[in-house]
Design a protein around this nucleic acid. Structure first.
Lengths: 200, 200
DNA sequence: TACCTTTTGTGAAGGTTTTCACAAACTCGT
DNA sequence: ACGAGTTTGTGAAAACCTTCACAAAAGGTA
């Protein structure tokens, strides 16, 4: 919206863009303080800035990529991560044939160096892209070295201690969600919705 | 559990495995019918079979992969999709240098053939892995050809008509969720939980 | 068969989230 | 400076979801 030249935006327009209702937008924002001006709406630039603060996106996050296979490679080349403030600053793998190579200037290191690297680069978040069978072991080591957040792409349910945040992405599961939605003949609880705003 | 030799399982054990409560498991299942035997629990094999039916996973789903770039390639090689009943049976791209090549026996075709291919192979679900700027255009064509479900990996918000199911996966967004969770000083609504069962 | 144990299925209670609706606060044009 | 027109922030109501708790139904045992 900033790039489109808008200086101000209403809850109704925001809701339309993100697919929810105006009341929801206002309630959600109100949980963090008061952002808008009555009769006018929200000032785009300052709203953006305050949301960035709240979401913890005012800083750059250095990321460790664990697993230099197909998926790891695709993630590394994915330009969107960097654009959104997440930079993969180290790559760790187990395979001796990969260790020592570089991707675009970033050395692939042995997973055994995990502690040293994480401390030196002050890494708090890791992207785990290893086979499912190795995921739990890798995660245990990461947590042991002080990693606080993990985005897990391996189709494995991970156990982590309190205080560590795990977010799982399982593409097969996402396809299963679609499969269920398509199969739902008639009306079944849990149908996929595509909401549109409606406020006076 | 079937592989582990269990023939029967209680709601409590199921809950532990998936990270919820026994009551929740029972309520959820009860929405679709009655599955268990009082005093004994659920028969593993038949529960699995009925859940597969409900989720629409009793069939194999042929999938169209749109976009033969890095991400498309990683998806294609991702063994988990096939294991879970989703098989990529055609690959479509726009780049003439890629069209005509094959990945593991699957020809990369021109996006212009989309209608013909989808009809011939009876494809209902597509995996969209194209740049964000092209996503909406591609999706419009897919929907026009009768695609009913889309798993979108492009970081773009898609508009589709009613009756088409879209599921978006945005890795940067998932990292932002972690960023927020780590930043949350003290207790803030929406904290990440790691539930464990507790039932008498 | 009778009784004890286990575990489901499910109303009711409790809790959370979303929507409604409106006073208060602001802008803008005159 | 004033009045008409917007739009926020938010209590209250409605909707939704989860947990509780227990009768009912089964298996096992003697």
């Amino acid at each position: 919206m900033e790039e489109e030249g808008a200086t101000t935006v209403s809850s109704r327009v925001l809701a339309q863009r993100v697919g929810t209702t105006a009341a929801q937008v206002r309630k959600d924002l109100s949980l963090f303080g008061t952002f808008g001006t009555r009769g006018l709406g929200y000032e785009v630039r300052s709203l953006r800035e305050r949301l960035r603060e709240i979401l913890g996106l005012a800083q750059e996050w250095p990321i460790a990529l664990i697993g230099a296979g197909r998926i790891g490679s695709a993630l590394f080349e994915y330009p969107n991560l960097r654009r959104r403030g997440f930079e993969i600053v180290t790559i760790l793998d187990r395979d001796p044939r990969k260790i020592g190579r570089s991707w675009d200037g970033v050395r692939i290191r042995s997973i055994d160096e995990v502690g040293e690297v994480i401390e030196r680069l002050r890494i708090k978040v890791a992207l785990v892209a290893v086979p499912a069978s190795e995921a739990q072991g890798v995660v245990d080591r990461l947590v042991g070295c002080g990693i606080r957040g993990i985005l897990n792409l391996a189709p494995a349910r991970l156990r982590v201690p309190d205080g560590v945040t795990v977010n799982e992405v399982d593409l097969a599961l996402e396809l299963e969600v679609i499969s269920y939605a398509l199969g739902a003949r008639g009306t079944v609880p849990g149908e996929i919705r595509q909401d549109v705003t409606s406020d006076p």
